[in-house]
Simulated assay, not measured.
Amino acid sequence: MTPPVEQSLDDVIASCDRIRAYVSDPALPEALVHDAVRMRLVDIAAAVQRLPPTMTRHEPAVPWAQVSALAERLTRRPAETPASVLLGTARTDVPVLCAAARRMRARCP
């Protein structure tokens, strides 16, 4: 059974918040942050795959197809994504995605 849209958006937001906490904590080892960010991006991709196009089209600045494809790339070919790319994504793209997910969640009944 597919979770409701609200739950998928909540999953995206929660993962974004966790990623932000990981990358902002200087006490965490870099390898641990890399692994944690990668897994949270996989979680985000899975949640985004459950969102209907009728909802994502309201946030055209987010490349939803690319976000959705992250799970495949990060689980089947993890070595092809260097830590610098993951951390750059975490610091630059995740906040944009999180803001979009929060706006979408606010529009839900």
Rank of each mutant, 00 (worst) to 15 (best):
P109T: 06
A46F: 02
Q66W: 12
P26H: 06
R40C: 14
R57M: 11
S84N: 11
D17M: 15
D10Y: 05
S24T: 15
A21C: 05
V62Q: 02
A79W: 07
L9F: 04
R18D: 07
L86V: 03
R77C: 14
A100I: 06
D35K: 08
E72Y: 15
I19N: 01
P63N: 10
D11P: 01
R102T: 09
I13W: 03
L51F: 00
E6N: 13
L86A: 03
V37Q: 02
V48T: 08
A100P: 03
A106R: 08
V85E: 05
T56F: 03
A36D: 04
A65H: 04
T92G: 14
A61W: 03
V48G: 00
L9Y: 00
A36E: 12
M1R: 11
Q49H: 08
E72G: 11
R107V: 08
R20C: 12
Q7P: 09
M104H: 04
P95S: 05
C16M: 08
C16K: 03
R73K: 15
R77D: 13
C16F: 06
P4H: 10
A31E: 11
T75H: 11
I44W: 02
P63W: 04
D35Q: 15
T89H: 05
T56V: 03
Q66E: 15
E6G: 07
S15G: 04
A65R: 06
M55T: 11
A83R: 13
E59D: 09
A83G: 09
P26G: 01
M1K: 12
A101T: 04
D11K: 11
R38C: 01
E59W: 08
A100D: 05
T75K: 08
I44G: 00
P60N: 06
A14D: 10
E72W: 07
S24L: 07
A100C: 07
A99D: 06
C16S: 15
E59P: 07
S84R: 14
V85W: 09
P4K: 13
V94H: 00
R50H: 11
R103F: 02
